[in-house]
Design a protein around this nucleic acid. Structure first.
Lengths: 341, 341
DNA sequence: GGTCATTATGACAGCGCTAGCCAATGTTCA
DNA sequence: TGAACATTGGCTAGCGCTGTCATAATGACC
């Protein structure tokens, strides 16, 4: 009942070895041979036995996604993207939620790779921002791709997918400036995340371009949480001189700020414009809905996984992998900054 | 470098086969032999090569989680629980997000099982509520465990983990009744989810026990979304005779209702008590925070996976698997119903 | 103590594929 | 035309484990 490589070989009129060559994208297979085999594979709906492949080649056809992120939407979208890439390339995705602050985190990840014989890893913050983890993986010759905040490709950032938080923040700030706001407050996220710093830099740059400077008391650090947004907005809006707009470092903070504003009878967006970041479902569940920056997480993750496959496949030379792609989150204008949406 | 079954056998002074027996919990291994082998495994930190096991036994050590649920928190918690169980039993979890409404969904799931050689599946709604899927899996002799809404074990529900939405809804309603509310409105979820019906039944039962009946116009169906909560609460609160409490079928609906109430200057909980369901992070990000029912998703999922392992393991007789466990979500009282929390 | 039933253990053959090598063909280009 | 190269097949040999079956150890019983 089960279709083996033998059946494919027979149907295609070639040897097992050649089918294997095709399956593994090995070079030196003529185009027409390749097509014949591909057709046979398709016709028989041949699915290679991955256990046998893994065993024989002593490498696995699965990649790992290590995460530690309270933002469920983010995680779901990331794994969705990786899964899409995996399906295309007949890989499997092994997910591994864990505690990033564990002291043995490096060891744990290495063990994961060994135990599940992973072909590589996709790392998101905070794992992608751990230099010692990257070093350990490199030392063990384990392929990995990092998704990190950044705007300028550099040799140091090889095998990275960059998300340009700077430019996105610049765009959001610019949007607020174009609406006539100059008194803009910035509510940062956790400072250990580089994304928060990048977004602040983008904010400052946009102001600077117009000869403006942020008021120091309006650049308030905190954490990426609803509560943190509530508290900071309350303070800002209680002051004598109030900002006319708030740029929150993510949607949760923005929702918190919005909440405080409502409680204090501040009309949104008439008296106060609020912008978030992420375009999480959350940003559509406030009222007014939040202007935000859309991060195409699924696409980013898919791209990262594809990059990983390139790195780990023997047929590719590693030289061309050093290229870096930069994703720029898009501005999404909604009612929290602009009455019409 | 890599430790194989050979190393363990040598260290324990037994044959490879005996180590294999121990690894697979096969019967007829003497206690002292078992201990010797176990010690050796531990000492060497032996990790069996799953590819080899799969190949040799032509069954896999991985289970699948098929889902289609917009609620990211739910999905994350479920997969977390399954993953915990998998780690314990040296299984792997294959996640498979898909579209439940696809016409070929049964075929798709069957192919997934075949392709990834899954040992079994854990199904959550809506997949767990598809009779034709269950039939197809049974016909193909594929092990699966369903997580469904229900309160009474029955032979029909073999290999099910039940979540007692009825009793939880009863508890929530009772909580509102105890606070003195009698004018309670019910905001339902999507009607195709049996959970919504179960919760309504629990609501009605609690009222009935006190000789009360729900007012028909206060039992409003809709969907499990924020917007649906906003709209329905607005209608309710615009009527001449207003409810003094709202039982929303999930936290999103409750948050929407809360939002409408605030807009209409209805004080929470003084003029209107609101309760949700799920205890999602969402329920802590409103203000006041939501009274809700905590569904221990991670535990439920872990339990379901364990049950699946029992079903699919050859060493167990299937008779004892028919037992059904019922999880009852716990009442969590917060400020949206009771001023002090 | 001997016989038989039972349990515990081991030898051996693969699971379905890949790897590496060499030989046998084309195919190309000087 | 010949040499160099690209393409394919045919072998052999596993990968690390499990299944099957034979064998050895143990126990029960008269």
């Amino acid at each position: 009942m089960k279709i083996t490589i033998n059946d494919v070989a027979r149907l295609a009129g070639v040897s097992i070895k050649t089918v294997s060559r095709v399956m593994n994208n090995e070079p030196s297979v003529r185009k027409d041979t390749f097509d014949k085999v591909t057709a046979a594979i398709k016709q028989l709906q041949y699915q290679p036995n991955s256990a046998a492949r893994n065993l024989a080649s002593s490498r696995s056809y699965s990649i790992g996604y290590v995460y530690d992120n309270p933002n469920a939407y983010y995680v779901i979208e990331m794994q969705r993207g990786m899964l899409d890439a995996c399906r295309k390339h007949h890989y499997e995705l092994i997910i591994h939620p864990t505690n990033a602050k564990s002291p043995d985190i490096v060891q744990e990840v290495l063990e994961l790779v060994e135990r599940s014989r992973l072909a590589g890893l996709v790392l998101t913050p905070p794992f992608s921002e751990m230099p010692h983890l990257a070093e350990a993986l490199t030392a063990k010759d384990i392929a990995f791709v990092r998704i990190i905040s950044g705007s300028t490709p550099s040799p140091k950032l090889s095998n990275c997918v960059l998300v340009d938080d700077f430019t996105a923040a610049f765009k959001i700030t610019n949007h607020l400036l174009e609406l006539g706001h100059t008194d803009i407050a910035f509510l940062g996220g956790d400072e250990e995340h580089s994304s928060s710093g990048e977004r602040l830099a983008g904010f400052e740059a946009a102001l600077g371009k117009r000869g403006l400077k942020p008021r120091p008391e309006w650049v308030v650090s905190g954490s990426y949480s609803f509560e943190s947004g509530v508290a900071r907005a309350k303070t800002l809006l209680s002051a004598k001189h109030k900002p006319s707009a708030i740029f929150a470092c993510n949607d949760e903070i923005a929702a918190g700020a919005l909440f405080s504003a409502r409680l204090m009878n501040v009309a949104i967006p008439e008296q106060l414009a609020i912008a978030g970041f992420e375009n999480s479902p959350f940003s559509r569940q406030t009222w007014p809905r939040l202007t935000t920056a859309h991060q195409p997480n699924t696409t980013i993750a898919q791209y990262a996984a594809e990059l990983l496959f390139k790195c780990s496949k023997k047929t590719n030379n590693k030289a061309d992998v050093k290229q870096q792609t930069v994703f720029i989150p898009e501005l999404v204008v909604r009612e929290s900054t602009s009455p019409g949406g």
